Simulated assay, not measured.
Amino acid sequence: MLLYNKALDANHTLLRMTALLAAWKAVTVEGEALRLFDFLIANPAHIHKLSVPRGKFAAKNDFKSYKNRYQSFEPKSLFNAMKETHCVVIERFVDLGILQPHNNHSEYKVQLENIPEELKKLAESSENSISSQAIHFIIENLISIPITGSDGLKKITNLMEYKYDVN
């Protein structure tokens, strides 16, 4: 049996990240945040599993309905499998001038005006297969959270090692 997972599809990743960047309208982004947020957009059911205090982000419970018995995977393994695709897509964004390395190689300056019009149109379309609900949740709740730290994105998503990070 042939299985397709959009999380590992470079074209779908490019579309998801474009949709996120277009909605986010950030001046700069950290590469790790972009990767974590893309994972959540590709796998919205994982939003329900965010490790946050009870009552914080009550809207995360809305993502229980995204659970799919055919999409059973170990989240960290899938996130690690997505790394190569994430790197390729980020490099493509750099080639297009959408992302420009900034200060260090983990932070990028965002140039939304360099997104090709057709790609932007497709990414913002309501008829694509991207969860706009997940993008809105991320923008409303997660973009202000630092990557590292005791309450950082790495810890609450439980997708990346965080214990040895320096704040």
Results as ranks from 00 to 15, higher is better:
Leu112Asn: 04
Glu84Pro: 00
Arg54Ile: 13
Ala19Trp: 04
Val88Thr: 13
Ser72Arg: 15
Gln133Phe: 03
Asp95Gln: 13
Val27Phe: 06
Val88Ile: 14
Ala123Phe: 01
Glu32Arg: 08
Phe39Glu: 00
Lys121Leu: 03
Ser65Leu: 03
Asn5Ser: 11
Arg54Met: 02
Gln71Cys: 01
Asp62Ala: 13
Ser126Phe: 04
Thr18Gly: 11
Ala10Ile: 13
Ala33Cys: 07
Leu34Glu: 01
Ile41Asn: 01
Ile115Ser: 02
Ala134Ser: 15
Ala19Arg: 03
Ser125Pro: 09
Glu107Thr: 15
Leu112Glu: 06
Glu84Gly: 07
Leu14Asn: 03
Lys64Tyr: 10
Leu34Trp: 02
Met82Cys: 11
Ala22Asn: 09
Asn114Asp: 02
Gln111Cys: 09
Leu34Met: 09
Ala33Gly: 03
Glu32Phe: 00
Gly97Ile: 10
Val89Gln: 04
Asn114Gly: 00
Ala134Thr: 08
Glu74Ile: 05
Ala7Phe: 01
Lys109Phe: 15
Asn5Ile: 09
Leu21Trp: 07
Ala23His: 15
His12Asp: 12
Ser131Glu: 06
Leu78Asn: 08
Phe137Lys: 08
Leu50Ala: 08
Lys109His: 13
His136Phe: 08
Tyr66Glu: 14
Leu34Arg: 01
Asn103Cys: 05
Ile139Gly: 08
Tyr108Gly: 04
Ser129Thr: 13
Leu36Tyr: 03
Ser65Gln: 12
His48Met: 08
Asn141Trp: 04
Tyr108Glu: 09
Glu113Met: 06
Phe63Gly: 04
Lys109Cys: 09
Ala123Gly: 12
Gly31His: 08
Gly55Val: 09
Ser65Asp: 08
Ala59Met: 04
Pro75Asn: 12
Phe37Tyr: 10
Ile139Cys: 14
Gln133Ile: 02
Phe93Leu: 07
Lys56Met: 12
Phe93Ser: 05
Thr28Pro: 05
Phe73Val: 11
Ser126Pro: 07
Gln71Gly: 05
Lys49Pro: 00
Lys64Asp: 08
Ala123His: 05
Pro44Asp: 08
Ala45Gly: 04
Ala134Gly: 12
Val52Gly: 04
Leu36Ala: 00
Pro75Leu: 11
Asn11Glu: 15
Lys83Trp: 06
Phe93Gln: 07
Thr85Ala: 12
Lys109Ala: 12
Gln133His: 12
His102Lys: 12
Val88Trp: 06
Lys67Tyr: 13
Ala45Ser: 13
Leu21Gly: 02
His12Pro: 00
Asn141Asp: 08
Cys87Met: 11
Ala134Trp: 06
Ser77Trp: 03
Ile115Gln: 00
Tyr108Met: 07
Ile138Tyr: 07
Glu113His: 03
Lys120Val: 00
Leu119Lys: 00
Val88Cys: 02
Lys25Pro: 01
Asp95Gly: 03
Lys121Gln: 14
Arg54Cys: 03
Asn11Cys: 02
Met17Arg: 09
Pro75Tyr: 10
Met82Leu: 01
Asn128Ile: 04
Ile98Phe: 07
Leu99Pro: 10
Ala10His: 06
Leu20His: 04
Lys64Ile: 14
Met17Ser: 09
Val110Cys: 07
Asn104Tyr: 10
Ala22Tyr: 06
Lys60Met: 08
Arg69Val: 09
Thr18Val: 07
Asp9Gly: 04
Asn11Asp: 13
Lys76Gly: 02
Thr28Gln: 12
Glu91Ala: 15
Lys25Ile: 00
Val94Ala: 10
Ala22Thr: 10
